[in-house]
Design a protein around this nucleic acid. Structure first.
Lengths: 240, 240
DNA sequence: TACGCGAGTGAACACTGTTTACCAAGTAGT
DNA sequence: ACTACTTGGTAAACAGTGTTCACTCGCGTA
């Protein structure tokens, strides 16, 4: 029994090593240098051995994506831990700034995770980053100090999707141990989170991909002004 | 002399054919199926011959990107041509909706062009899509019926970049024959355009990539509400 | 002790982008 | 008209890719 456990641990060990090496290759030498043979060579085995751990190359990098998302989640959570729970504006800003800072510090990981068209299957709750954003932002908004549009103000045609979104959110929060009374999480709250995400993603992706319609020399004030405007709209007083 | 012209035309012909076939492969069989040998096979030549037309594979798809952007620009321009010049709200909505419609109709082209991290060199005015957005949106905003923040209201740290942006814009407009008095194109206008672009790109990219934090069943009302909100903020009365 | 399972290997297959040497055709120069 | 040169194209090769198949070798269990 202990023997089987040891064997399993060793397998999990090299499995972890595989993904670690893959990520190292990605950050050091770019996405097109992460290859089966390259990974295998780096850990001292041969390429076909990797098929004992993953069904295909695609399968491997999908798991690498999951790892990356987990790290991003950890970093956001760590940044959030420093800020008192009552300071909702501070927490919101921490998440936004943390996301941008991570994206800038890890542009290749960001590209891999966020610029790869995900099949319709990945849009569910299993989506790695979905959990991050849902959990982190959900915790913040659970303190319900936001000024959000009332349920009657959200566009009628959005109700169906927003209801689904809220359900996903509450499920995810409950799963991580945060119980949120359903009545404090209005459809307006869900709508606000969605708008947050659209602008945050747009701003960060444009900056990382260099797709602003002109050569921006310093994107930070642009980002700061956007998040300040965003916070203002939802009734958060930005910290000085 | 006519002989040389014929030769040049033939060369331009096959050159055009190359990019056309490359795009067809992209659209029909996905990005990973556009390959030098595949393209060559489709037009009845062999792979190394393509090097008479492009320096490398990367060079080729870069030109394909340019073609794609040109088509997008044409489509936006065509949609804009139907709407009278005085109807600024209609024109703004046409651009936004046209961009989304094109992205949904051509998801693979969209991914190729907008989800590929562009080196710092491509962020200049030579960037293919930069010209589109700049030109199209610039023409619209040249009618100056927008309610934009005054120059004194734009965040101080943004002035440098916004000034550069405005200069790029005016240059580009002048280049396409639209002369805009500099005083009607305030920094606030440039700022507004940037905010427009961030949200539009974020929304469309999230939809095409399937990266919303929950499985959206009908993204259109989400898009419509976003663009309506956006228009409202800049003082445009949305059409019924 | 023999069995079986599982990690790992080596060779092969069908690809990929890219380079080199070569070739045929047509233009240009004298 | 007869060279000389450019131009578009080819065949072969090279290094590398994901993937498969047959085959080991070692370890845990019956």
């Amino acid at each position: 029994m202990t023997e089987a456990a040891r064997r399993d641990r060793k397998r999990a060990d090299t499995d972890h090593q595989i993904r670690t090496v893959a990520r190292a290759l990605l950050v050091d030498n770019g996405a097109q240098s992460v290859t089966l043979r390259g990974i295998a060579r780096e850990i001292g085995i041969t390429a076909p051995a990797l098929y004992r751990y993953y069904d295909s190359f695609e399968d491997l990098i999908q798991h690498v994506c999951a790892d990356i998302c987990a790290d991003l989640a950890d970093e956001l959570a760590a940044g959030l831990a420093v800020i008192p729970e009552e300071d909702t504006p501070g927490r919101v800003f921490a998440v936004c700034r943390g996301f941008r800072a991570w994206a800038i510090r890890h542009p290749r990981e960001f590209s891999l995770v966020f610029a790869t068209p995900a099949g319709p299957a990945a849009t569910g709750a299993t989506d790695p980053f979905g959990r991050i954003f849902l959990t982190v932002a959900g915790r913040v908004l659970a303190t319900r100090t936001l000024v959000v549009p009332g349920d009657l103000d959200v566009p009628e045609r959005l109700i169906a999707d927003l209801t689904l979104f809220r359900a996903t959110l509450l499920d995810n929060l409950a799963e991580t141990g945060v119980a949120v009374p359903e009545h404090v999480f209005s459809l307006g709250t869900a709508y606000t989170m969605l708008r947050f995400w659209v602008r945050l993603y747009g701003q960060v992706a444009l900056e990382v991909f260099g797709r602003f319609p002109f050569p921006v020399v310093d994107a930070e004030p642009l980002f700061e002004s956007m998040v300040a405007e965003l916070a203002l709209e939802v009734g958060l007083t930005p910290p000085g």
